[in-house]
Each structure stands twice: as structure tokens, then as C-alpha cells.
Design a protein around this nucleic acid. Structure first.
Length: 503
DNA sequence: AAATCCCGCCAAACT
DNA sequence: AGTTTGGCGGGATTT
């Protein structure tokens, strides 16, 4: 339910780009549509439809399609509006994050592959690259119960990181969900840091891998038995792996227990990106990169091929773009990722995704396969003041969380931090905190929601927000009534604990 | 001819 | 054993 409503908010202004339009149609699967027979070809020759075009099956294009596909089901909205919502509904984030979880938010790998008209193998390629730069699409498919347990048991800080900054958390079964670009800034930041450290030789570089609390997948019966709690980390996979990388200097070495396949596409991607993040030059040709990434080895043919794969995906995200090296005719790639490159790390900055204009829904619908050069001329230093507005989602959320907590704790406060979508009007809020009975809580939340209702200049935004408020209310009341199975697993106390977890 | 890079076999890694 | 991931390289397409 609610699917239709949300979709209505999507701009979807039919562009006049006839050329692209065609592709777009194909890229956006309509609901009733089932298969996508397009290229159903058996192995060998491609008799039918000689319209076969290699380009139409490029990873890059596929990638953008994937994005649009995922976005289609509400998730698109979630991805972009998440920050907005959290500004006011910080405490509701869990709800937002899992909103419509079951059918819309996630898509089965097989289904996706089918709709895109490709083999699942390709999906893996894309996902791997995306994940390595923080655009995670792999999401734990936590059940409501599991998630709530999660919230109840861990510090809210962790929860927020978990929800927003998620950098590749995997472990799910064939299920993907689009989370957005929220994790990108952080991911890049970390990559850079790591890269610099490596460069300077020393530094043992701590293992990364955000702990992923893998909860059961099926709702029932997943007691958290272990009293201790926490320490659910579980590094998963590689105990060590990810060596300090092998630059030209040290080729064959490590290998404790076979460096497994840590020559994976994902790792390669990260290293590739690191090149851009550290290096002063901002363009590089693939074979050049291949050399750097793989100590001049002699097994490069393959490596280059992989780089092409990566480049395609990154390119479709506008993280990178291909250009002709001025001097030599050789094509090379240029990093577009982070706007300014002020080394000052204290700075927020890092305009995230689509360098598009306003609401970055640019590539939302798989269109724009041509990355028409945005007006991002030379060093676009047009972001001095914007910095504040384009902080990473994580940053926003953090602030958000703080302010909300504050507000929950005390009366109102003036320092509410707004994100990119500045509400026009002011907001008043005077929810009398104080946790009364459960029933009252419902009231409180409702009033809270009401008073927090922002006044967006943008009509669509306002509607959307309203929609969510509505959804939340309905969900909450239903829940409060106990009709929800969740109640069986834990009573109000738990929920409240999570809602008012400001202790 | 050189640059790209899709396709899908088949082996690890997980159930 | 069955399934899900995802190296890897042949060789088709593009440039």
C-alpha cells in the first residue's frame, strides 16, 4: 500500500529527449510488465532481433537501469528524502528505513535480473562496485522484530550509523534494497585516509568492515540469547586479508591462507578510487592504473578488463568520466567524485551524488545515459557556502539526532539543524516530553509529528512528507493496538526504550 | 589493428 | 548436495 501515493510525488517530467526517451521506457519497468524478453537469446548465435547492440548491454547502462529499477519502488523516495525526513523524524528513522520493507523496498536479485533482462552474474558486478564506494545496495534484510531488537540493544549512535552510513553491509539472501548515497562521503574519506597512510609506508591500517549485526532472517525465534549483547561484530570472512596492498614493490608475499579472492572486483575498485583520491593528477588511463594497481605484473590483460568494468559503473554514477587526454590521444578517466578537494579534512563538503541540479534525481530514471557534461567546468569552487548544505547524509543525521534528542529531552531549542531542503516556515514544537503511559506516547508522537510538520516551499515535498506522517500514524496506531505481531515479541517497554533512548 | 568489455563457464563460499 | 557469489579469460564489438 501507499505505493501509488509515493510515486505520485516523483517528478517524472517526461523529457523531450526523444533519443533517450526510448531507452528510458525500457529502463523503467512498469508494474504490470512482467518479463523483459528483449534479448532473450540462447547461447550461440543471436538469430532473432539482429538489433543486438553491445552497447545496450554495457555495465554502465545496466547500472543506471538498476538504479532506476530499485528506485521505482518507493525506495527512490527513501533514498533521497531520507535526510529530509530524518530532520524531523529522526527518532522515526527506523520506521522510515524499513518502511514498506517487504515488497517495495527490496527487490529480489532474480527478479531484478529478469526485469533488467540480464543474467544475475551482471548484478553481482554492479553491486560489488557500488558497495566499494559506499553506495551500498546490499542491505540486511532485517525483519521488523530483528531490527527493533537491534535498536533496543545497541546504542543509538550505532543505530544511526547502521542506518545511514552503512558501508556495505551484506548478508542477505538475494535481496537488495537501495539505500542511497549517504555512505559515500564517509567511504571516500576513509578510503583516502587509508590510502594516504599506506602511501607513507607505515601504519597498520585497521581492518575496516563495519560490524554487521546479522540478525536472523525469519522473524520468529531469534533470541538474542547471549547475555553480553554487543560483540555481535563477527568480522565475517577474512580474518586478515586485505594486505597493505601490493604496490610495485612487494608482489608475491603475504598469503597466509591464500589471499583468497581478495583481488576481487570490490577491492580493485577501492584501489582504483584511491588512486584518484591521493594522486595529484586527476586523470588516469586504465592501463596506467592497471600498472599501478598491479605491480607491473604480467597478468594485466585480465586486470584491464576488470578496470573497464569498474570504470563503467563508476562512470554511470558520475563519479568518473572518460576524456581524451589532451596531449596523447589516449582516453583516460577523470575523477568527479568530490567537488572541491580541500585537504582540510575537517571540512564537510563532498557534494555527494549526481552532480545534477536541484533534487538530484537526474539519473533517477536511468535516463541520461550520456552524462551530458554538467556545467561543472574547471574547478567548480562554487561551493563555499554550500558546504553546509551539502554535508553528508551521515553528518546531517548526526546533527539531527542530537537536536532531536535535545528537543525530546528539553523544551524546544533553537538550534535545529536543517539539511539541504530548508523548510520555509519555522517550526514550532512544544511537545511536553515526559513519558507517560503508552497511550500517551501515541499522543505525544502524533503531536510531535504535527508540530514538526515543515513548511516546504516545494509542494511535492510537502505532500510527500504528509504522506509519511500519515503512514507513520497508521502504522503506529496499528501497532499500538496490538494487532501487530510485533507486540507478541516485545511489549511497549521495548519500543519506548528505543523511542526515548536518550539515557 | 587496437581498444573495449560482454558472456558465461565454473570454482569458491555459503547454505 | 544445492545455491549464491564472483574470478577469469575467450573472443565479439567498437573505435
Amino acid at each position: 500500500m501507499a505505493t501509488a501515493v509515493v510515486m505520485a510525488a516523483v517528478p517524472s517530467s517526461s523529457p523531450a529527449d526523444a533519443a533517450e526517451a526510448v531507452v528510458m521506457t525500457e529502463a523503467v519497468p512498469s508494474l504490470p510488465q512482467r518479463q523483459q524478453p528483449v534479448f532473450v537469446e540462447g547461447r550461440g548465435g543471436k538469430l532473432r532481433d539482429h538489433a543486438y547492440s553491445r552497447k545496450q548491454k554495457s555495465l554502465g547502462l545496466l547500472c543506471s537501469k538498476w538504479g532506476s529499477l530499485v528506485h521505482l519502488g518507493d525506495s527512490w523516495i527513501l533514498a533521497f528524502w531520507f535526510p529530509v525526513l530524518t530532520e524531523f523524524f529522526c527518532a522515526f528513522s527506523s520506521f522510515v528505513a524499513l518502511y514498506n520493507r517487504d515488497d517495495v523496498e527490496s527487490i529480489g536479485l532474480d527478479d531484478a535480473a529478469r526485469r533488467l533482462g540480464v543474467e544475475r552474474r551482471r548484478i553481482y558486478d554492479i553491486v560489488n562496485v557500488l558497495e566499494s564506494v559506499g553506495v551500498s545496495s546490499f542491505f540486511l534484510r532485517l525483519s521488523w522484530t530483528g531490527f527493533l531488537f537491534f535498536l533496543a540493544r545497541f546504542d543509538s549512535d550505532i543505530c544511526f550509523r547502521f542506518i545511514c552510513e552503512k558501508i556495505l553491509v551484506r548478508k542477505a539472501k538475494n535481496r537488495y534494497s537501495w539505500i542511497g548515497f549517504g555512505g559515500v562521503p564517509m567511504a571516500l574519506r576513509e578510503l583516502k585516509e587509508r590510502a594516504l597512510r599506506e602511501k607513507s609506508g607505515l601504519a597498520p591500517l585497521p581492518v575496516e568492515e563495519p560490524s554487521a549485526a546479522i540478525m536472523s532472517d525469519d522473524e520468529d525465534e531469534d533470541k538474542m540469547g547471549d547475555a553480553d549483547g554487543d560483540t555481535e561484530s563477527e568480522k565475517l570472512s577474512q580474518p586478515v586479508d586485505n594486505p597493505s596492498d601490493n604496490k610495485p614493490g612487494a608482489p608475491r608475499c603475504r598469503l597466509r591462507s591464500d589471499h583468497r579472492k581478495e583481488k576481487s572486483l570490490g577491492l580493485l575498485t577501492q584501489n582504483f578510487v584511491k588512486l584518484f583520491l591521493t594522486m595529484e593528477v586527476d586523470t588516469i588511463s586504465l592501463d596506467e592504473a592497471a600498472k599501478l594497481l598491479l605491480g607491473e605484473g604480467h597478468a594485466e590483460n585480465t586486470k584491464v578488463r576488470r578496470l573497464y568494468d569498474i570504470a563503467n559503473v563508476l562512470s554511470s554514477l558520475n563519479f568518473i568520466d572518460k576524456i581524451q587526454q589532451a596531449d596523447s590521444r589516449k582516453p583516460a578517466f577523470r575523477w568527479l567524485g568530490s567537488a572541491g578537494k580541500p585537504k582540510a579534512e575537517n571540512g564537510v563538503t563532498i557534494a555527494v551524488p549526481p552532480p545534477g541540479k536541484t533534487i538530484s534525481n537526474k539519473r533517477a530514471f536511468g535516463t541520461e545515459l550520456t552524462n551530458i557534461d554538467i556545467n561543472r567546468s574547471r574547478l567548480d569552487s562554487t561551493i563555499p557556502k554550500k558546504a553546509k548544505l551539502t554535508q553528508s547524509g551521515g553528518e546531517i543525521l548526526k546533527n539531527c539526532k542530537l537536536s532531536v534528542q535535545k528537543q525530546l529531552g528539553q523544551g524546544s531549542k533553537g538550534g535545529f539543524v536543517y539539511g539541504p531542503f530548508h523548510p520555509a516556515g519555522a517550526r514550532k514544537q512544544e511537545l511536553d516530553n515526559g513519558n507517560k503511559g503508552h497511550t500517551d506516547n501515541v499522543q505525544n508522537w502524533e503531536s510531535l509529528a504535527a508540530s514538526f510538520r515543515p513548511q516546504y516551499q516545494n509542494q511535492a515535498l510537502g505532500d510527500l512528507f504528509a504522506h509519511y506522517v500519515e503512514a507513520w500514524k497508521s502504522w503506529y496506531s496499528e501497532f499500538a493496538q496490538g494487532s501487530s505481531m510485533m507486540q507478541q515479541h516485545f511489549g511497549m517497554p521495548v519500543i519506548n526504550q528505543f523511542l526515548y533512548s536518550n539515557h
